[in-house]
């Protein structure tokens, strides 16, 4: 009996000791978690707005519930298909091309021997990220304007080609938008990947070189595996944003040109155009909640798959 008691007590003591061991770790997390509670979790109560017809006079809480009525406008339209297709389509392309280019650039930067060149390249590829999207839309306009635009004037003109009325020709825009997006964002992601790359142990490369591995083999067998967890993390995070789109890219860069809606209208721009004059907070939160919810489901699924394959790389 006595022995048994002791045996029972020991795990408890161990557990307590173990918990005490983690106490500093929990303490470290306090400021961050507290901030998330204040900045994110408490305002999340506002999600109820999506299910209410808000009347501020009565207060959000006492406003009448309307069920899923605020969500209807997202689906009761023939455009629902177009906007969903566009949103997912562009995001898929971004999801694949973005990292592809960013990783390539990161690897190239890592392989380059000239320190000076490295620095210059790194700085220059970050330039587009620093330009506000509205200014980007002016620059794109400067390139594509029908009469004074650089492309029609200097490029097509030089080849004797007919000028193109870019802002009324939808067929070019999928390419233009992808180019603009990549142009603006690849420097930023390259830097993230590059930071992960320089963290890879140099000795691995040295060992591989001694074994006679070529550069490609080194990249394939050391670099890419070393980036695996960063790639997975970034991809999972992008999947969560699958139903969102960069408003500036799809609204301002095409200058809200009606002729391009078939290829530029996404969930965000649709909601903006529909609600611009309505000032209806219920419907706009409904749209946001819908986007988040789908993203959430997608991430849960993707994370489940990841955790089946490689437990440590899962987000949670």
């Amino acid at each position: 009996m006595k022995n048994e008691k002791q045996n029972n007590a020991r795990p408890a003591v161990c557990l307590r000791a173990k918990n005490r061991r983690y106490r500093p770790l929990y303490a470290m997390m306090v400021p961050g978690l507290l901030y998330l509670v204040i900045n994110n979790y408490i305002p999340m109560a506002g999600i109820v707005i999506a299910f209410k017809q808000v009347n501020y006079k009565a207060g959000i809480l006492k406003s009448p519930w309307v069920g899923f009525k605020n969500f209807e406008f997202l689906f009761k339209t023939k455009d629902a298909l177009t906007i969903t297709r566009n949103t997912i389509g562009y995001n898929l392309v971004f999801l694949i091309l973005g990292p592809l280019l960013a990783i390539t650039v990161a690897i190239l930067l890592n392989e380059l021997k000239s320190k000076m060149a490295k620095k210059v390249y790194q700085t220059v590829i970050l330039v587009p990220y620093l330009i506000s999207i509205v200014v980007v839309s002016y620059l794109v306009y400067a390139l594509l304007a029908t009469e004074a635009g650089f492309v029609n004037n200097s490029v097509l003109g030089a080849f004797g080609a007919e000028p193109v009325s870019w802002y009324s020709e939808a067929k070019y825009w999928p390419v233009i938008l992808v180019l603009v997006h990549i142009w603006k964002g690849f420097g930023y992601s390259s830097i993230i990947y590059y930071a992960a790359l320089v963290g890879i142990d140099r000795t691995c490369y040295e060992a591989a070189a001694i074994d006679g591995a070529t550069r490609w083999q080194q990249i394939l067998h050391i670099t890419l595996p070393g980036l695996k967890s960063t790639i997975i993390t970034l991809t999972l995070m992008s999947i969560g944003k699958m139903f969102y789109s960069d408003f500036g890219l799809f609204y301002q860069v095409p200058m809200d040109s009606g002729a391009l809606y078939d290829v530029t209208n996404t969930i965000d721009t649709y909601v903006y155009r529909g609600l611009m004059k309505l000032n209806n907070v219920g419907m706009s939160s409904a749209a946001g909640l819908y986007q988040s919810f789908v993203g959430f489901i997608l991430v849960l699924t993707a994370n489940l798959v990841v955790s089946k394959i490689s437990k440590d790389d899962a987000l949670f």
């Binding site: 998330l36 900045n39 994110n40 979790y41 408490i42 305002p43 999340m44 109560a45 506002g46 999600i47 707005i49 995070m237 969560g240 907070v281 706009s284 939160s285 946001g288 909640l289 988040s292 993203g295 959430f296 991430v299």
Partner: peptide
């Protein structure tokens, strides 16, 4: 917190 938010007004 990356996925869900309560919108601008509550924040």
């Amino acid at each position: 917190t990356m996925l869900f938010n309560g919108g601008v007004v509550p924040s």
